[in-house]
Protein backbone atom coordinates (compact mmCIF):
# COMPACT_ATOMS: atom_id res chain seq x y z
CA UNK A 1 0.00 0.00 0.00
CA UNK A 2 1.18 3.51 -0.79
CA UNK A 3 2.18 5.73 2.11
CA UNK A 4 1.38 8.83 0.06
CA UNK A 5 -0.91 8.96 -2.92
CA UNK A 6 -1.85 11.92 -5.12
CA UNK A 7 -4.53 11.40 -7.74
CA UNK A 8 -5.51 14.04 -10.28
CA UNK A 9 -4.37 16.92 -8.09
CA UNK A 10 -5.00 20.43 -9.38
CA UNK A 11 -4.12 23.70 -7.58
CA UNK A 12 -4.45 27.43 -8.09
CA UNK A 13 -2.69 30.57 -6.88
CA UNK A 14 -5.68 32.90 -6.97
CA UNK A 15 -7.00 32.81 -10.52
CA UNK A 16 -3.84 31.25 -11.92
CA UNK A 17 -3.79 27.46 -12.20
CA UNK A 18 -0.44 25.87 -11.26
CA UNK A 19 -1.20 22.14 -11.20
CA UNK A 20 -3.31 20.45 -13.86
CA UNK A 21 -3.35 16.83 -12.75
CA UNK A 22 -0.53 15.43 -10.66
CA UNK A 23 -0.39 11.71 -9.84
CA UNK A 24 2.18 10.44 -7.41
CA UNK A 25 2.59 7.30 -5.33
CA UNK A 26 5.20 6.74 -2.64
CA UNK A 27 5.51 3.30 -1.10
CA UNK A 28 6.59 2.78 2.50
CA UNK A 29 10.40 2.85 2.79
CA UNK A 30 11.00 4.01 -0.78
CA UNK A 31 12.75 7.08 -2.15
CA UNK A 32 11.00 8.97 -4.94
CA UNK A 33 12.56 11.83 -6.91
CA UNK A 34 10.23 14.55 -8.12
CA UNK A 35 11.85 16.15 -11.14
CA UNK A 36 11.06 18.75 -13.74
CA UNK A 37 12.37 21.97 -15.15
CA UNK A 38 11.92 25.26 -13.27
CA UNK A 39 8.33 26.41 -12.82
CA UNK A 40 6.76 23.05 -13.60
CA UNK A 41 4.97 22.71 -10.26
CA UNK A 42 7.34 20.72 -8.03
CA UNK A 43 7.22 23.12 -5.08
CA UNK A 44 3.47 23.62 -5.54
CA UNK A 45 3.00 19.84 -5.36
CA UNK A 46 4.92 19.82 -2.08
CA UNK A 47 2.77 22.65 -0.76
CA UNK A 48 -0.32 20.62 -1.63
CA UNK A 49 1.06 17.54 0.16
CA UNK A 50 1.95 19.57 3.27
CA UNK A 51 -1.42 21.37 3.21
CA UNK A 52 0.17 24.77 2.74
CA UNK A 53 -2.01 25.64 -0.23
CA UNK A 54 -5.69 26.38 0.19
CA UNK A 55 -8.30 24.23 -1.48
CA UNK A 56 -6.42 22.02 -3.93
CA UNK A 57 -8.64 19.64 -5.92
CA UNK A 58 -8.11 15.92 -6.43
CA UNK A 59 -7.27 13.31 -3.85
CA UNK A 60 -4.29 13.35 -1.49
CA UNK A 61 -4.07 10.47 0.98
CA UNK A 62 -1.34 9.81 3.53
CA UNK A 63 -1.17 6.56 5.49
CA UNK A 64 -4.63 5.76 4.18
CA UNK A 65 -6.17 9.02 5.41
CA UNK A 66 -7.56 11.70 3.14
CA UNK A 67 -5.73 14.96 3.85
CA UNK A 68 -8.56 17.15 2.50
CA UNK A 69 -9.48 19.87 4.96
CA UNK A 70 -6.67 19.00 7.35
CA UNK A 71 -4.61 21.97 8.63
CA UNK A 72 -0.85 21.90 7.95
CA UNK A 73 0.12 21.23 11.58
CA UNK A 74 -2.17 18.17 11.72
CA UNK A 75 -0.67 16.82 8.49
CA UNK A 76 2.80 17.33 9.97
CA UNK A 77 1.80 15.46 13.14
CA UNK A 78 0.62 12.55 11.00
CA UNK A 79 4.21 12.15 9.84
CA UNK A 80 4.93 14.59 7.01
CA UNK A 81 8.34 16.16 7.60
CA UNK A 82 9.24 19.02 5.30
CA UNK A 83 12.70 20.44 4.62
CA UNK A 84 11.65 23.57 2.75
CA UNK A 85 13.38 25.26 -0.13
CA UNK A 86 15.71 28.01 1.10
CA UNK A 87 16.22 26.24 4.46
CA UNK A 88 14.22 28.73 6.55
CA UNK A 89 15.46 27.92 10.03
CA UNK A 90 14.21 29.88 13.03
CA UNK A 91 17.14 32.28 12.84
CA UNK A 92 16.65 33.89 16.28
CA UNK A 93 16.86 30.52 18.01
CA UNK A 94 20.00 28.50 18.66
CA UNK A 95 20.65 25.18 16.94
CA UNK A 96 19.54 23.35 20.08
CA UNK A 97 16.39 25.46 20.37
CA UNK A 98 15.47 24.87 16.72
CA UNK A 99 15.59 21.13 17.32
CA UNK A 100 13.96 21.29 20.75
CA UNK A 101 11.03 23.39 19.50
CA UNK A 102 10.24 20.83 16.78
CA UNK A 103 10.76 17.64 18.79
CA UNK A 104 7.96 15.09 18.89
CA UNK A 105 8.06 11.67 20.53
CA UNK A 106 9.65 8.89 18.47
CA UNK A 107 12.87 7.26 17.42
CA UNK A 108 14.54 10.47 16.26
CA UNK A 109 16.05 12.41 19.13
CA UNK A 110 19.06 14.68 19.75
CA UNK A 111 21.49 11.76 19.81
CA UNK A 112 20.36 10.38 16.47
CA UNK A 113 20.33 13.80 14.80
CA UNK A 114 23.77 14.59 16.23
CA UNK A 115 25.05 11.22 14.99
CA UNK A 116 23.82 12.07 11.49
CA UNK A 117 25.15 15.65 11.61
CA UNK A 118 27.93 15.92 14.24
CA UNK A 119 28.39 19.55 13.30
CA UNK A 120 25.01 20.41 14.80
CA UNK A 121 26.25 19.24 18.18
CA UNK A 122 29.35 21.43 17.86
CA UNK A 123 27.17 24.42 16.95
CA UNK A 124 24.52 23.69 19.60
CA UNK A 125 24.54 27.12 21.26
CA UNK A 126 25.06 29.11 18.09
CA UNK A 127 22.15 31.10 16.64
CA UNK A 128 20.78 29.43 13.51
CA UNK A 129 21.02 32.71 11.62
CA UNK A 130 24.80 32.75 12.09
CA UNK A 131 25.37 29.27 10.60
CA UNK A 132 26.77 28.68 7.12
CA UNK A 133 24.34 27.67 4.37
CA UNK A 134 25.35 24.01 4.63
CA UNK A 135 24.95 23.97 8.40
CA UNK A 136 21.55 25.62 8.10
CA UNK A 137 20.56 22.90 5.66
CA UNK A 138 21.73 20.24 8.09
CA UNK A 139 19.69 21.96 10.79
CA UNK A 140 16.62 22.09 8.53
CA UNK A 141 16.91 18.33 7.91
CA UNK A 142 17.62 17.67 11.60
CA UNK A 143 14.61 19.71 12.62
CA UNK A 144 12.34 17.81 10.21
CA UNK A 145 13.70 14.52 11.60
CA UNK A 146 13.00 15.66 15.17
CA UNK A 147 9.29 15.69 14.24
CA UNK A 148 9.70 11.92 13.71
CA UNK A 149 8.19 11.85 10.24
CA UNK A 150 7.16 8.81 8.23
CA UNK A 151 7.77 10.70 5.00
CA UNK A 152 10.64 13.17 4.72
CA UNK A 153 10.18 15.73 1.97
CA UNK A 154 13.34 17.49 0.78
CA UNK A 155 12.71 20.49 -1.46
CA UNK A 156 15.94 21.49 -3.28
CA UNK A 157 17.99 20.43 -0.26
CA UNK A 158 21.38 21.02 -1.87
CA UNK A 159 20.64 24.11 -3.94
CA UNK A 160 23.20 26.88 -3.61
CA UNK A 161 25.61 24.86 -1.47
CA UNK A 162 29.34 24.32 -1.99
CA UNK A 163 30.20 20.95 -3.65
CA UNK A 164 31.83 19.57 -0.48
CA UNK A 165 28.78 20.43 1.61
CA UNK A 166 26.46 18.98 -1.04
CA UNK A 167 28.33 15.69 -0.74
CA UNK A 168 27.80 15.74 3.01
CA UNK A 169 24.07 16.31 2.61
CA UNK A 170 23.74 13.58 -0.03
CA UNK A 171 25.68 11.18 2.20
CA UNK A 172 23.27 11.93 5.04
CA UNK A 173 20.27 11.32 2.78
CA UNK A 174 21.82 8.01 1.68
CA UNK A 175 22.25 7.04 5.35
CA UNK A 176 18.58 7.84 5.96
CA UNK A 177 17.63 5.65 3.04
CA UNK A 178 19.77 2.78 4.31
CA UNK A 179 18.09 2.95 7.70
CA UNK A 180 14.89 1.91 5.90
CA UNK A 181 12.65 3.63 8.51
CA UNK A 182 11.72 6.55 6.33
CA UNK A 183 10.10 7.17 2.98
CA UNK A 184 11.70 10.09 1.19
CA UNK A 185 10.39 12.45 -1.48
CA UNK A 186 13.25 14.45 -2.89
CA UNK A 187 13.08 17.40 -5.26
CA UNK A 188 16.43 18.13 -6.87
CA UNK A 189 18.08 18.70 -10.21
CA UNK A 190 21.29 16.73 -9.56
CA UNK A 191 20.59 13.60 -11.57
CA UNK A 192 23.92 11.94 -10.75
CA UNK A 193 23.12 12.02 -7.03
CA UNK A 194 19.47 11.14 -7.44
CA UNK A 195 20.49 8.03 -9.39
CA UNK A 196 22.28 6.76 -6.29
CA UNK A 197 19.39 7.14 -3.89
CA UNK A 198 16.05 7.28 -5.73
CA UNK A 199 14.05 4.14 -6.48
CA UNK A 200 11.53 5.89 -8.67
CA UNK A 201 11.15 9.15 -10.55
CA UNK A 202 8.10 11.26 -11.26
CA UNK A 203 8.53 14.05 -13.80
CA UNK A 204 6.31 17.10 -13.84
CA UNK A 205 5.77 19.24 -16.91
CA UNK A 206 3.53 22.29 -16.95
CA UNK A 207 1.83 21.25 -13.72
CA UNK A 208 1.16 17.68 -14.83
CA UNK A 209 2.89 14.40 -14.08
CA UNK A 210 4.08 13.20 -17.48
CA UNK A 211 6.45 10.37 -16.61
CA UNK A 212 6.54 7.91 -13.74
CA UNK A 213 8.94 5.01 -13.63
CA UNK A 214 11.91 3.31 -12.08
CA UNK A 215 15.13 5.31 -11.90
CA UNK A 216 16.78 2.68 -14.08
CA UNK A 217 14.23 3.40 -16.83
CA UNK A 218 15.09 7.09 -16.95
CA UNK A 219 16.94 6.92 -20.25
CA UNK A 220 18.40 9.64 -22.45
CA UNK A 221 15.24 9.98 -24.49
CA UNK A 222 13.07 10.69 -21.43
CA UNK A 223 15.67 13.08 -20.03
CA UNK A 224 15.92 14.94 -23.29
CA UNK A 225 12.16 15.12 -23.77
CA UNK A 226 11.09 16.18 -20.27
CA UNK A 227 14.11 17.51 -18.43
CA UNK A 228 16.24 19.02 -21.18
CA UNK A 229 19.42 17.40 -19.84
Amino acid sequence: MSLLSLKGVTAHYGASQALFGVNLEIAEGSVVALMGRNGMGKSTTIKVICRLLKNPMGQVTFAGQDLAGLPAHRAARMGLGLVPEGRRCFTNLSVYENLYASARPGAWDFDKVHALFPRLKERSTQLAGSLSGGEQQMLAIGRALMTNPRLLILDEATEGLAPVVRQEIWAAIATLKQSGDLSILVVDKTLSELRRIADRVVILERGKSVWDGAMTDLDADVRDRHLGI
Binding site: C50, L52, P71, A72, H73, R74, A76, R77, L80, G81, L82, P84, R88, F90, A101, S102, R104, R143, A144, M146, T147
Partner: peptide, 10 residues
Protein backbone atom coordinates in the same frame (compact mmCIF):
# COMPACT_ATOMS: atom_id res chain seq x y z
CA UNK B 1 4.37 28.57 7.74
CA UNK B 2 7.58 26.85 8.84
CA UNK B 3 6.13 26.42 12.32
CA UNK B 4 3.01 24.78 10.94
CA UNK B 5 5.06 22.31 8.91
CA UNK B 6 6.78 21.04 12.05
CA UNK B 7 3.40 20.31 13.60
CA UNK B 8 2.83 23.49 15.59
CA UNK B 9 -0.77 24.68 15.90
CA UNK B 10 0.06 28.37 15.58
Amino acid sequence: ERARTVGINV
